[in-house]
Design a protein around this nucleic acid. Sequence first.
DNA 1: GGTGTGTTTCCTGATT
DNA 2: GAATCAGGAAACACAC
Length: 256
Amino acid sequence: MVLQASSVMSIPATVSVDNQLPVSWTTHYNCADVTSGYMSRLWSQDLHPQNWTKYQVWEWLQQTLDMHQIDATSIPFQNFDLDGRQLCNMSFQDFTRAAGSVGSILFQSLTDLKWNDFPCSILPFKEESSFYNTSELFDIKSSFQPNTILSSPTPSSPDPRGTHLWEFIRDILLNPERNPGLIKWEDRSEGVFRFLKSEAVAQLWGKKKNNSSMTYEKLSRAMRYYYKREILERVDGRRLVYKFGRNARGWRESEK
DNA sequence: GGTGTGTTTCCTGATT
DNA sequence: GAATCAGGAAACACAC
């Protein structure tokens, strides 16, 4: 299942990569955070669930499922196309109706947030300074979908979330309408893709890693290391073209 | 502190 | 000639 924001904004091709990423992306969406310290740092803001946007509701949903090791495909996300106020008005029965057995977990989580001085409230992006609003932020942040997160660990990586370069690439590919013109599928069924704006992708990757000196040269070196691990396969004779290998997970349509 | 992993950086040489 | 590819080597950050 793929989370779909109702109002997504495509990044104009003319916008520089520096402007494509909101300040808070690197601040809050550092994927190194996704392990032990993730929740405590990410959920450390003071916004009450009542005030959440739809995006923040989804973010909470995602984090809660992650926290309980629940596969996101087990609940219909469209039932949570709500803002914080609507969410807080849901009864226990509403939750179980919307999410089945997971509903009780979600209800408990939300109740805790509402009554425990909301120590774990979702990141509010209230400091957002770019021209992207929260739904637009979803463009990039949502590329780490719960389903792919939970279903795509690498053989050598115990971290189930999208922390690695190949996952970063994959997630851009899985959201073409939200990250247009950067990378595109050449052969979707075979996992063949091509960089359209190699330096832009490198800068995006660098932004994510807080490394302003990242270049395609360096990124491609990291990509080449994936050949040995069979996460990527060589595509001979074609520039900027790569192919997912047998150890890459979560890119196939059947896995969505 | 040691180790393993996943890059990152720099490099040389080949190819397009 | 510039961009890209390929891969060796060392360094680095981080988790365990």
